[in-house]
Write a protein that binds this DNA or RNA. Structure first.
Lengths: 245, 245
DNA sequence: GTCAATGGTTTGTCCGGACAATCGAACTAC
DNA sequence: GTAGTTCGATTGTCCGGACAAACCATTGAC
């Protein structure tokens, strides 16, 4: 074992972060095997020339990610199991791209409309005030996967259809300096109407997965509300959760 | 304003936890209004007779929960928005009970069976080895809501049908000393078969929400695998996510 | 042989201090 | 008036130390 750890004090990267990254890499890579002890904090701190609080901060961040477990009187262990990463606030586009399915987007509509009661309540704006409405069809391998309808407050960023066809909405928002912070989601299912079926290439009455999501930035402002429908035959949501202790 | 804060040093409850609870209560109660500054950490520490690290630890826990946002050079603000709590690893039973719907359970089967390939892979046991299989129907207000089929490794705990009808599976597991840690979930949808429809009181072909979940304890062992189907007309998943920074 | 007491190990909590990085606002120069 | 600069305020990072609490294994008593 003996795991190669070191920190660069001249780097602007925080020391605890350097350490947590190295530990995470070692876990990912298999150098630190599941169930193995990490060695006590004090010894580890001494070995690296760091203080115990710094080492603890590094370890704690991995505990929060669910990669490590601490036990008083025992030590810190690597969790063994296929825990990968807890649900990210990811866009469908990124998900598809990561899965190797070349995603494509058709922009069906991109305009300003007055907010309906539902949209206004979700975004926290006045009913009837102007909001940006984007309607898209997401394809993978040329096949329709999902129908996405999103609403954004005006003035946040201007979305060009060309950009929307090239990448995902979240990436555009992040690129515009918006820091996504949290989201409220509802996932359900229903039978496709004739129109929905035609859009997605499913027969009327076919089961569809539905998701509504409101996304907030770090000040708590709602920055996006979306209503999505997915072909249940082609898509499902998969994610991990951690118990908050 | 001037927020009533105090800590009890004779209490066994950690000081940082006392503080974070009081702050959380004040936010929940509206004493700390969204967007308001929290006052700088050093002054707060002095006022309470605590050290800055302790105050920071309290604040950090609320930042992790998504209730507060820190900004260097500015201060710590209360997030305004309806962020409640990030998705818990909760059981359907608890969810229904919290929603005021008196849940009930019918145990349809409760026996040991050899593990199928799917179950064996999920639980990490040998194919064909004995596992505990529990089949239940979950009702709310006397109406079927979901059909639950769960598999558990043998030897973890013994489940009596009487207990299963009185409470949820997760509560029984926690009561048996198992600390639930994380879960891997897949949510999808499909059309009901004739048998499934009859069980849940839906017509054949009606859309059903499906969930598969494998739950792990804090050592990474799989302690439960379940396949659930919900009536989409009566149930949907709702939750919050936080972005990990 | 079984059960309780003991002790060592390790993490949990808490303290006090120091300096750096960043933000916003006031100020100054042009 | 506008743009750039300086400066105070606040959080971010890091240190070194101290004691408490929980866990495990060994020892001891019955």
């Amino acid at each position: 074992m003996s795991l190669q750890l070191s920190v660069d004090r001249s780097s602007p990267v925080p020391l605890y972060f350097q350490l947590s990254q190295q530990l995470e890499a070692a876990i990912e890579h298999g150098t630190l095997t599941p169930g193995s002890l990490l060695g006590n904090e004090i010894e580890l701190a001494g070995r690296l020339g760091l203080s115990r609080p710094t080492v603890r901060q590094a370890i704690q961040s991995l505990v929060d990610k669910g990669l490590l477990v601490r036990r008083r009187g025992v030590g810190t262990q690597v969790v063994h199991s296929q825990v990968k990463r807890p649900l990210e606030l990811s866009s469908l586009y990124d998900d598809l791209e990561a899965a190797g399915q070349r995603p494509a987007t058709q922009v069906l509509a991109n305009a300003f409309v007055p907010a309906s009661a539902e949209v206004a309540a979700s975004l926290g704006v006045g009913e009837g005030s102007e909001v940006h409405r984007v309607e898209r069809l997401r394809l993978a391998h040329g096949e329709p996967m999902a129908y996405l309808c999103n609403f954004l407050p005006t003035g946040l960023l201007d979305l060009q259809s060309g950009q929307l066809e090239a990448t995902g909405l979240y990436r555009l928002m992040r690129a515009a300096g918006i820091t996504l912070h949290s989201a409220r989601q509802t996932i359900g299912a229903r039978a496709a109407t004739a129109i929905e079926g035609e859009r997605l290439g499913e027969p009327e009455g076919a089961p569809l997965l539905t998701m509504q999501r409101t996304t907030f930035d770090d000040t708590g402002r709602a920055v996006e509300y979306g209503t999505h429908t997915y072909r249940a035959s082609r898509y499902s949501f998969e994610f991990q959760l951690l118990v908050r202790s």
